[in-house]
Each structure stands twice: as structure tokens, then as C-alpha cells.
Design a binder for these strands. Structure first.
Lengths: 339, 339
DNA sequence: AATTAGCACTCTAAGCTCTAGAGTGCTAAC
DNA sequence: GTTAGCACTCTAGAGCTTAGAGTGCTAATT
């Protein structure tokens, strides 16, 4: 798959220019704007080759070229140059993460997704920590009134879940404490996904006369397992309106409707990252979902503690400022993980 | 402002037809479709009158008529007929609210907003209970680990707020309990908006050696006061895409961007309802915000307990199925308040 | 052999013109 | 007061035309 140095130059120029202008790039433009010392005719020949090899496309005979999906892929893999964010941008990132108030993981994620989308002008997708892989830390029940209590589940990743549950009237505070203590003893240190099956068998036996009341606890744990949807955080969803390729209302519609289907998004974000480290870029049809086949997704996992727990992704048109997006993502994840 | 019975009939027919078809309505159409026993010519004369009086508009000379804002207003005030939802729809409403699991107010609201938007095909806006007007019920602090605790605030409207706070290491469980007990004693029964000023003066004196730790508590209370944004719940935001008047991308964009500005929405929903009972309809420019001046908003307040605490609204194009929307809103609020 | 100038050719976007069709307003008859 | 009839108006859409951008090929140049 060796391209000549000149072809690389030209491919890079096409990508660069098309990303900037969203207009097909002609040979004259390249010769003029990227002063590579060849005449437009030479560049035309090269571009014809590149097209034949599948790296470029021509919307119609008398238009310039645009990168094909394969072209973007080659650009991303081989040609893209690392760029530095400028100081203002870095400061903005540091600023967000140095805020003292950031104690709640959900808040942090929300802020991060705002930050990422506003730095890139694309849409940010963040998958929060997976409760399933977090270790159980503590469970408590706080009485609210006669009939109800607040069940709080704390995981070692800092995730806190609550749920209002019904308490049987007959239950005394002492009994409640004993039950909670027992649960805590039995569950300590387990990861959440290893809990349910054990709970249901063993704990039921231990606490069989409180089963009714415990159902809600099981429910919370089970919900935590099926909670893929509630892990998805979006930022800058309206940024697509800034992209000329989404001038068409149908496309905007299908994307925005997708944004409401968190289960699908969770899948989109977690699938391609299984077992991979570092930044992953999925271009156009490389993505699973039909709705984003004109989009690219730049994403990476992040860790809290030692475990991989979630994903941060940036979704934009295939005509995306890949190098910039990668730089932003690296910086942000770096800071994020330091918390 | 007396319109002749015939003019009323015709105005009603124009509104009805335009709401259904989104096309300007001609005299022939009315004569045929609404068999009112007059020839098109007669209807034309009447329509010319109605136009002169400001109830109808003509997009251009050779098009039919469409209702003006004044026309809609008259329709809503005088002509609109009450309709019944069909049994399936009623069942759906009952179904949602009869669910046993609905213990958390936030959940209930979320479900309601889904329900309303899917029943109407418009966008639902719900303003959750105002914590400010709720009475304080209980405050508790649950230790999470050495440095952190979960502060839980329960209000009588069922609203529960939590916040992770830092606990001073030195603080013993006993001390913590005493502080919490003291706070509960002092705050009992007060509405939230009457707390802050008192707290800051009196409690600081009582508990002056724990001030550092209490700051976070004050912060939560203060945030509760400024929480207008977090009270807004939206459903069916992508429904605008179904409305032909939003075929224009700019309009969709400005509306969707508005949907992200919860503070503005909170204002939009609470302003017009101050001191009013029952259903309020704001048509087009009657609304405060520029972005919704081609929309109508049908809304009403709801109570939990005796107090008015929030608002449910339905936002659609001015060409809206007012009677249907009103029926849905009545049913839903009725069920909602029974909880 | 590689590069380039030149030129005919292709295709699109945008502006024009034209026309069918819908709907009106007016007049005169009922 | 109502209606039939008719000339008139306006739009949406189809078809045509053209300027401009960009190409691919050929032949000349380095």
C-alpha cells in the first residue's frame, strides 16, 4: 500500500483543504494554496491515480476531488500530524478539572462533555463508569418517612446510586441496621456484576423473612446491571447544525433521534473499544449504526483507579478535524484520569 | 366582538382544516368538506370579511386563507369544542400512572413527559416541583468513606436532593449525629426559601466550630434556590421534525438550541401562570421568547398536596390541535395529581 | 521519462421563462 | 341575500440557458 511521497502530499492537501472548506478540491487550488512545486496538470494526473486507487472521489466529472472513506483512513493512519492545542485551550481544560467542587462523578462527566463539545464544535459522547465492573463498597438505607427509605449504593469508582424503596412498617430501626450490616458484610469487595446471582441465592436464605422488602434492593442492583442507557452523557448535540453536510433536515433528524436512544449509543461507544488501548477512530461506514455512517467517531477509554470504566468519544462529520480532535481528546482524558 | 354565527362556522372550518392539512384553505374546500349549505361564493365573501377583521390571512392573492394569530385566539376562546380522548388513550394514561414503581418524583415526571409528547406528537415541557416552596422535611448525612459523606435533603413534596460533601476527618460519628439532629430541629417545617437567610445567621452561631463542614450544606440549600434549570424536563424534542412549518433548518435549530437553555424555558413556563388557574394557552407572539413566536404553548399548573408546585406544558406549532392537546393535558394532570 | 501548456469537453448551480392550477374578487343574474 | 360565471392573480414546478469550475487528453517541453 505504498503511496509515493508526492501522492501522500497531495492526499494530505486534499484532506486538509476539504476539511476546512467542505468544498471539493481542484488541482489549481492545491497547486496554489499548498505550493508544492508542480503544475496543476501534474497534480491532476496524480489525483486521477489516487482516485483510481480509491483514496479520492469525484462528486461529478467537473468537480474537484474529495477524500473517500479509504482516503480518510489512510490520512488518519499515516499522514495526520500531531498538533498542539494553544495555551488558551489548555488553560480551559485545566481550569475545568481543577475546580474544587468536582466531587460527584456525574458532575465531572457532565462538565467534561460540555468542555469537549465546545472545544471541538462537534458532539461529545461520554459513557460513564460501568457500575457492573465497579466494586461494591457500601450500601445504606436511610429512612425518609414511615413507609419509605432511600437506598444508597456506593461503588469504588465513586458512582453513587439511589433509589427510594418501600419499607415494611413493622421493621424497627434496629432490625434495619442489622439487615444492612449483614448485606454489607456479604457484598464487600465484590464487583457488581458478580453480585446478583449470589445475592438472590444466598441472601434470600439468610434473610428470608425480609424478602419483600429486599426485592427493591435486588431491583436496584439489577437495574445497575442493565443501566447501559443511563451511562450515556451528551454534549453539544446542536453542533451538527454547524456542519454544512447536515443542511438536509432528514439527516439532522435521524441523528438527533439517535441521540435519544442511549442504549444504541452505549453500544456504539463500547463495541469498538473492547480490548483496545489508546485512541480509536471509526470513519463513516466503519461504525455500526446506520445513522452515523456519514460521521466519524474519535474515542478512547478512560480509567478511574486501575480499571477501564468508560469511554469518551467525539462525533462529527467524516470531514472532521481529526488531528485537532485527537489532541483535545488526549488532553482531556489525561486531566480526567488525574482526578 | 360579535361574529355572526355563519362567520364563526367558517372560521372554525378554516382552523380545523388548516390544522389538519397545513395548507391554506379555499372557499371550495370549505363548501365541499364542511357542507355548510352555502356556495363557495358566499363563503368567499365571508372570508373576505374575516380577513378584513383580522381573523384570517392570505399568504398571497391566489391562495386560500389561514388563521391569523387573532383567529386562533378567537377559536381557542370561543369556538373550540371539548373533545374526549378515546379509550385506548385514556388507558395509556391510566396505565402510566398506576405503575406501582413510581415512588420517585423525578421518575414520575420523566414518564409523564414521555407520555404527553407521545400522545400529542408535540414537545412536552414540565417544570418539576419547586423546592423553594416545598417544606423542609428532613436532612441526613450518610458517611461514604473517611473524607466524604452524602448529604440528603428531603422535602415534603417528595423531592429528594443529594450532594456529596467533604467531611472533616476529625468529626466523630456522634458529633455528626448531633449536628444533623440540631439542623433538623431548627429547620423543621420551614419552606426552603425561608431557610437560607436564617441558616446563615443563626446556625452559624450555633455551630460555629463546624462552619467549614457546613458550608457544603449551605451550598446545597442555596443551589436548591437557584435550581430553576434543573427543574425542566423535556419530552419529544424531535417531534418538531414532524411539523411541516419546521422544514426550514434555521427554525429547527433555534428551537432545539432553546431546548437546551433550561433557565429560559423555566421562565417561559412559569411567567404566564402566575396567579392563574386552569389551562392557559399562549399563541405565537403572546409568548415571551422570540424562538417560540411561531409556536403555541398550552399549559397548566399542577399541585402536589395543596400547594401549586409546577407546570406542565405542551409546545407545538401555532397550527396546533388545540382541543386535543387540552384534552390530553386535562387527563394527564388529573391523574398526575392523584398520586 | 517526467512535466506542463493548451484546449475541448463535461457538469452543476443559478437565473429565466413558461404554464398549469388553484383560488380569488367582482359583476350580474337569481 | 345568495350564487353562477368569468377574468384575473399568483405560485410552484418544469424546462431551458449559460457562466464557471474543473477535468482528461494530447502534444510540446525539459
Amino acid at each position: 500500500m505504498g503511496l509515493s511521497a508526492r501522492k501522500m502530499e497531495i492526499l494530505r492537501a486534499v484532506v486538509t483543504d476539504y476539511v476546512k472548506t467542505a468544498q471539493p478540491v481542484g488541482s489549481r487550488t492545491i497547486a496554489r494554496r499548498y505550493k508544492m512545486g508542480f503544475s496543476p496538470a501534474t497534480i491532476r494526473n496524480e489525483m486521477a491515480d489516487l482516485e483510481e486507487m480509491g483514496y479520492l472521489l469525484q462528486p461529478h466529472t467537473s468537480a474537484g476531488r474529495i477524500p473517500s472513506q479509504k482516503g480518510y483512513r489512510y490520512y488518519v493512519d499515516e499522514l495526520m500530524q500531531e498538533i498542539q492545542l494553544d495555551d488558551d485551550e489548555k488553560k480551559r481544560i485545566y481550569g475545568v478539572f481543577s475546580f474544587e467542587k468536582m466531587r460527584e462523578i456525574e458532575n465531572i462527566i457532565r462538565q467534561t462533555s460540555q468542555l469537549v463539545s465546545s472545544l471541538t464544535n462537534y458532539t461529545s459522547l461520554i459513557l460513564g463508569p460501568r457500575l457492573q465492573k465497579s466494586a461494591f463498597k457500601k450500601l445504606q438505607i436511610m429512612p425518609i418517612d414511615r413507609q419509605r427509605g432511600l437506598l444508597v449504593l456506593v461503588a469504588d469508582t465513586g458512582v453513587i446510586k439511589n433509589k427510594v424503596i418501600n419499607l415494611p412498617q413493622a421493621l424497627s430501626q434496629g432490625e434495619l441496621n442489622r439487615i444492612v450490616a449483614h448485606l454489607n458484610r456479604r457484598l464487600e469487595g465484590l464487583t457488581i456484576d458478580r453480585i446478583t446471582s449470589r445475592l438472590i441465592r444466598e441472601l434470600r436464605r439468610d434473610l428470608y423473612h425480609h424478602i419483600n422488602f429486599l426485592e427493591a434492593t435486588f431491583t436496584l442492583l439489577e437495574e445497575s446491571l442493565a443501566e447501559d442507557e443511563s451511562r450515556v452523557f451528551l454534549g453539544g448535540t446542536t453542533n451538527i447544525f454547524n456542519q454544512p453536510e447536515f443542511g438536509n433536515i432528514e439527516k439532522v433528524k435521524s441523528l438527533l433521534m439517535l441521540f435519544e436512544q442511549h442504549a444504541l449509543l452505549a453500544n456504539l461507544l463500547s463495541r469498538p473499544l473492547a480490548g483496545v488501548e489508546g485512541i480509536v477512530i471509526k470513519i463513516g461506514r466503519e461504525n455500526i449504526l446506520e445513522e452515523v455512517q456519514e460521521c466519524s467517531l474519535v474515542m478512547t477509554t478512560y480509567c478511574l483507579g486501575k480499571e477501564v470504566v468508560g469511554t469518551i468519544g467525539i462525533l462529527g462529520p467524516t470531514r472532521m478535524e481529526y488531528s485537532r480532535v485527537v489532541a483535545v481528546l488526549q488532553q482531556v482524558v489525561g486531566q480526567f484520569e488525574r482526578l
